[in-house]
Design a protein around this nucleic acid. Sequence first.
RNA 1: GGGCGCGUGGCGGAAUUGGUAGACGCGCUGGAUUUAGGUUCCAGUGGGGCAACCCAUCAGAGUUCGAGUCUCUGCGUGCCCACCA
Length: 830
Amino acid sequence: MLEERSTTYDFHAIESAWQERWERDRIYLTRDDDQRPKYYVLEMFPYPSGDLHVGHAKNYTFGDALARMMRMQGYNVLHPMGWDAFGLPAENAAIQRGVDPDSWTRSNIANMQRQIRLMGTGYDWTREFATCDPAYYKWNQWLFLRMYEKGLVYKREAPVNWCPVDQTVLANEQVEGGVCWRCGSPVERRNLSQWFLKITAYADRLLQDLDLLEGWPERIKVMQRNWIGRSEGVTFSFDVEGVADAKISVFTTRIDTLFGATYVAIAAEHPVVERLMQAAPKKRGVIEAFRDSLKSKSELERTSLMEKTGVFTGTYAINPLSHEKIPIWVTNYVLAEYGTGAVMAVPAHDERDFDFAKKHGLPIAQVIVPPGVQVDGPLTEAYVEDGRLIASGDYTGMSSTRARAALAQRLEAMGIGKTTVNYRFRDWLISRQRYWGTPIPIIYCPKDGEVPVPDDQLPVFLPANVPITGQGSPLANDPSFINTTCPKCGGPARRESDTMDTFFDSSWYYIRYIDPHNERAPWDPARVRPWMPVDQYIGGAEHAVLHLLYARFFYKFFIDMGWCTGPPEPFTRLFNQGTLLYNGEKMSKSRGNVIGIDDTVERHGVDAMRLFLLAAAPAEDALPWTEEGISGRVRFLARVWRASEPFFARAKSVPLDRLPQVDGEAQRAIVRAVHVALKSGADETNTRRFHFNTTTARLDELVNLLTAATRDSRYWDDPAVLYAIHALPILLAPFAPHMADELWSRLGYATSVHLERWIEPDAAALAVAEITLVVQVNGKVRARIQAEPGIDEDRAFSLALAEKNVKDFVGEKSVRMRVYVQDKLLNLVV
RNA sequence: GGGCGCGUGGCGGAAUUGGUAGACGCGCUGGAUUUAGGUUCCAGUGGGGCAACCCAUCAGAGUUCGAGUCUCUGCGUGCCCACCA
């Protein structure tokens, strides 16, 4: 008997009504005094750049579904949101369009906040903050000063990365392939006096503690390891022939190749070059010309596609063990910033040295041979593996491993070398010659020098109404900001005009959410203790060596200060979102292929958008956006509505904490489908796999069953159907929260479905009356037999042999072996 | 060049511990309902064959009673680092 349906699912009305009601009833507020176990889930906070597109929606939807799922699993969930609000785009808008960075940022925040709410996300907005709030950046300054006191902040003149377009220096982590990470222009190298954070002091802990991070993608850990780039070796020095006061210190991981060193290569910027030119003045001209030719090239040109070139200095180093005289060359391929800026060049056993030696006619002396191999003529390429030493004086015959230990000891005993550890990464340069950031709280006094701003004078406010022209640092050009008095002597002094890298702001924001309104400290350790670390952090892989490394560094500092306690890592698990693709490319504003959230919600509704983003693929995978795909989810929601509708007017209480009394296989199948879906959601959550695409597939199966059943009004009082219809809003709650609450309320429940618990999957409901036993002959499926669960092997065997197809394939042959997997499979080997 | 992943229908994907390959959705085909359909519902949809069956998870080999899953080789593809001594 088919019934006319009277209403349709009006998602516009329903979605906005529920969002208002959740807001009014404050159902997503998180309290500290909650007895349930805590769960802190956090998405990397966004930069307020303007409009959100559905690519952003993918991230927030996933985090929201995960948070809702954990809440329904009985956790006290902390799920906050805020704004990484300092940064260049605001300032560029000021330069280009004359708008005030603060108002530009605030209006973007307002719009993005509206859009994030529009997605039906369940954040605790009472904890919201923006890093450009003085109430927040005051604590940036305070943390900076504590680091300053501990010697973790220092100012130093060094060759640094300068972006000529953004008119500021950059950290090494912000130079990607020789170009600026923001604007893509080639980065230049300049010698400037800048503020650094001593992240290298934490190198070993940052490296070692990666092993604790079992819940992090291996790929991210590998990237961090490579970035930190620890290598063990020996640092020793060469004497320079005839120049008693010039020693050239080199670092090598292959001291076993020492007897094969045929020249010394040094960076053009190396300070010893000046001394060498004095010793061999005839060479000054060519060396200076060479150095200048490098200076005029950008970092990009210097590091990529560049041939190895160099000039002989006219001076010689003395090999400390063989006492051989080897030429010293200035080259373009030795980096001034790594190691000592000079290397012992061993062409036979290093590819770069081999290339260089070939090109410049330098000798190639083989001193390592593969184990069990005799020297058989000159090398055609560098042999870089370990082996056995030859032509190495007392060390000939040793293995590389033994020789490394022996030579290190020898050089140490001679007082010219020692075992050292080198890191590839550098201290973190945090000065920025820009306006829209946290002012660095330092004052320069002609009498007292560098003076930190006292705590009681914090924050150093970022002044408003400063002209921003793109020419020079805006703060440096603002006399009312720059001119101040010395906190020590009271005399006239100048403020530091640089602001902090915004990655400083994002290195501790996850703690501030726990105690967001604290005016006396960045946070109260007692309040933070129960919440940290973040249980699940969610964000893109692009921050692998930026934010994620910096935040780990800060957290270790906090632990050392006693401000945080417990495990040494801030993010227990890390989930990398996959990108959203459109027309085969990553959806992004810069590519101009974005689909807006407002438009999508207007046309299809929030729940349909959310379901599509969750159902189409696992969250870590890249996902192509399709209009057809979202239409499919609109149809799904319409089916849910149609199946549930007959029950709205007939609301009756259905206990969900126990299974309904049902008979008949069709009824049991419906109850089973409910519990299969419940189990899928619970499993994905409990294993922290969060592949909700499989859970939504189970919901499709359930709704397909219900669609068929509820078309016939005779089933409207069926206990299995009633049970399923009442369980459905709970199943939908994490994924389609508006539909879920609307159904729940129409079924007669007064409180929000989002305050309900996920129903525990029930083994009895999941049990099947009959199993399908697969019968294989020699590993190929030949029959499927229906049998009672728990069937024993002998009985399965006799049933199998009764199957015609099995008989045909066994034939005259005898069964040599049987493999039986309980309730699943029987394999007969003949 | 080095490191780390990944290759399953027309498409997104499922198969969590080696045990029915292709769940679920999209698309497509046919049918029903409708004045109409860009609605809804039903059925079909990896390839071959009339059929019994055979073939099929990038290609090839191996381990195993049994391989999408484990091992090796090759190919393709993606990401990260790219002179780090």
